[in-house]
Design a protein around this nucleic acid. Structure first.
Lengths: 248, 248
DNA sequence: GCAAAAGTGTTTGATGTACACCCATGC
DNA sequence: GCATGGGTGTACATCAAACACTTTTGC
């Protein structure tokens, strides 16, 4: 347990020396490419040491007077233009030695990472290339080796995403205003994998919940019968907010 | 957004000044008094400023070389003697201004709290009174006004506890080695409230899952038919580990 | 015997699963 | 017409809710 007992007592009679921290915020930003049915994660290329030239999650260090969530939004705003998104805190990773900058010659400052999980609407998400560092959407199956412990953070975020999808209406924060039931189904399928549920059962379950309203507008995509466009009805959903929903 | 733009640039041409943090760990420690069927939370009395003389969650500041989780275990070990427990990270609260010590005369250091959620076996949990500060189990319905934002943290932990109970076998980390099905039922009832489920249905659901093994030993408590003592069978549970269980 | 607690079973309605099938469109 | 995707309906198994009933103990 962290070398207790063997450590020099720095404040004799009082507590042991406290660690000094910088706090970073790292975002796991997901998006669903509904053309190609791929789940994407936003990565940026580091251009400072350590890990210069390696991909990592977009992150930043928290500034004076800035809340954790503000910092999370700030990174997002620096990297992509987006109107609709869902964001929540994920987990805090703070063991000693997780950042090489913690070397003794940097005054023993520790780096703690508070990670956030976000999902953004793909269609309107516009990457901001600052001309210096790389930035790209990576399909979840093709994530390279990332800097720091970011693979672990990403793994954690991916698990949260899949859980979230099952009992919460995040999908509607991130789908277009209107969508066909098949769009919705594809969305779930690309995240949860094939055969998470039969389409027709998915359909009737969702419709029975009563917060999808048929706009009456039909849309045709190539061959086949045109599909109805639906809209998420926030008011009809409100009473279900705290109930244990199942979208499966 | 945290006064951006109006703030003095302290490193002209580079980023704005970073915040310096001390990181605290605060534990929401639950236990279930199976005699009186009460859900308890461990509180300690602060004897330093700020908030001296007020109750708060047991917490500590993270020391050099110590991981977050180590710090969480350290507080636990300082406050109670306990062998069986469940512990997991809860959430990080880190907005500016959540700690009065952040006053400008203390060099602008921020205090971030990483909260942990724990549940311990009541029978063997022995409070350690250090003779200085108060320490006590408080029934969840009688929580007083706490220091800092600890009421919020506790509220968050309480919600997590109730959710956790529904799909995860935490109960068995915290019940005695052997227990009657009624003990188990009481445990759920004191946390989730009366009528979360009919006893006989609860019974058959749990038994059908197949990881409770009847020891054959009977125990009689006053009048009535003696009850069988059961044991949690970790091996039989293993294959169900990642399945979405429902203990309700 | 009787009260009290443990444990079993049964009935009923709701829900999930796996399909089969009909409908509207492009070509 | 027919392939294609959209949409509806049905049969079956499973499961939850409510409650009646039997068993085994203390007194």
């Amino acid at each position: 347990m962290a070398g207790r007992g063997t450590k020099k007592i720095e404040n004799p009679g009082k507590k042991q020396a406290l660690a000094d921290f910088k706090v970073g915020v790292d975002n796991v930003i997901f998006s669903v490419d509904n053309e190609q049915n791929r789940l994407l994660v936003l990565l940026v290329m580091r251009d400072d040491e350590p890990f210069s030239g390696q991909w990592c999650l977009p992150g930043t260090l928290v500034r004076k007077g800035e809340s954790l969530e503000d910092a999370a939004y700030r990174i997002l705003a620096e990297k992509i233009k987006v109107k609709n998104l869902y964001l929540e805190q994920l987990y805090s990773f703070g063991g000693p030695g997780r950042d090489p900058r913690e070397a003794p010659d940097s005054f023993g400052v520790r780096y703690l990472s508070v990670s956030y999980f976000a999902i953004v609407r793909f269609g309107e998400a516009e990457l901001i290339a600052d001309g210096v560092s790389g930035i790209a959407w990576y399909p979840i199956q093709q994530i390279p080796q990332l800097a720091f412990d970011h693979n672990k953070i990403l793994e954690y975020g991916y698990r949260r995403l899949r859980n979230k999808l099952e009992y919460s209406p995040v999908a509607f924060d991130v789908l277009p205003e209107v969508f066909t039931l098949n769009d919705l189904y594809q969305f779930y399928t690309t995240i949860l994998g094939e055969n998470f549920s039969d389409y027709s059962n998915f359909r009737s379950r969702l419709l029975k919940l009563g917060f999808l309203s048929d706009t009456g507008v039909k849309v045709s995509r190539g061959a086949g019968r045109p599909a109805s466009l639906y809209r998420f009805d926030a008011e009809a959903f409100a009473p279900l907010k705290d109930k244990p929903l199942v979208f499966i």
